[in-house]
């Protein structure tokens, strides 16, 4: 049985929905970041598959930039999370419903 582009796209979609469910049901911000990583990774698979099956390098290039963005997102996000945890002693989403300083 030959594995085609559709197989990879279906896999990417399944992983993307798992990530979306994670984003919607998690309350802890750290777990929310994990779900975001899943989303980014599932899209990377789709990029790499399309790049392979069409003989084009652009997909891989975009996957690289997605990885770079994910890395910087983690650095900034964890920094903010550490500051929030120092101040409020929890990282639940419900405690961030107000924007007073």
């Amino acid at each position: 049985m030959e594995i085609g582009l559709n197989h990879y796209l279906v896999l990417s979609t399944i992983l993307f929905s798992i990530g979306l469910v994670g984003v919607m049901r998690r309350k802890n911000l750290l777990m929310l970041f994990f779900a975001t990583e899943i989303l980014l990774n599932s899209v990377n698979i789709a990029f790499a598959a399309i790049s392979h099956f069409y003989g084009d390098l652009t997909g891989q290039m975009f996957a690289f930039f997605v990885i770079a963005i994910a890395a910087s997102e983690v650095a900034v996000g964890l920094g903010l999370l550490v500051v929030w945890h120092k101040r409020h002693n929890n990282i639940d989403l419900d405690s961030m419903s107000t924007m007073r300083g």
């Binding site: 469910v21 049901r25 998690r26 789709a46 639940d92």
Partner: peptide, 26 residues
Amino acid sequence: LKEKKGNKFLITGLASVAAVLIVVIF
């Protein structure tokens, strides 16, 4: 970890719709 207590069908439905949207985009 405490979980958000939301409508499970809503969450699953929204996730599926978004996933189908991704497939359409690709």
